[in-house]
Amino acid sequence: MSKNRFTGSELLHAYVDGELNPEEKLRVEQWLETHPDDAQMVVEWQKQNQGLNDLFASKIDEPIPQHISTNNELHHTPPKSRSASSFGSQIAASFLILSIGIAGGWFGQDYFNGSITDPTVITATTQNFAQPAMEAHWVYTPEIRHPVEVGKSEQIHLAKWLSYRLEAPLSIPDLTTLGFDLMGGRLLPSGTGPAAQFMYESKEGSRITIYLTKSLNNDKEETAFQFNQTGSTRAFYWYSDALGYAVIGDIERNELLKIVNNVYQQL
């Protein structure tokens, strides 16, 4: 390899991406010590790489949908068909087992309708409501002094007030048995009118939020739990009667699902 494979800023990219040999690497490191602007750029790019990996990490652990298969016999099956009976081959079975292993207890959880939601299928309409719920979670959970608008001491007032604003009777779920104490809640704007957020905290300081918004569904049907993840923040969300609910936390998926089931039972 020629010594001048990379020139100028290319060297910096190549450094970030591990393309350099030890000698070139050393030269770049020496350069960075005396060139803070370049060093800062390198840090920024490394942060981008980390961010990209965080954003899409969940895809690697996700169970592989049944219609994706390396089985020759399935070649002419339309991709959308999800018939479990077509899942005959050893190959397909072997990575089904693999994906169950990866998914941890995902399939083992009790779903209230007995139906398993494919976590990879997120419809556009419901995503619209998961996104603001997550943003509200990110904005308010780091707060030290003002995490909530109305505190736990005024819990009865909080429930009444938010019920009035969301035009639906709300009860505030009690999650103490799962180790999360209510901190309080707040009123929020949303695309469909007022929304509400309740915040809870564990003894370790981990915070979860429950987000409620008026349903866009006119049929007022119940939907199954859906899952969304950005970085380490995970959310389950669903519609029930007149409201859409999201439970959000930076905790492990199975832990969050326990809370979700508990919240659902209390509604």
Partner: peptide, 16 residues
Amino acid sequence: EQHIRPQIKPNIRRVK
């Protein structure tokens, strides 16, 4: 000023 809490690490970290 400390208005924002430091990030709480999730209990179980994802293995990269």
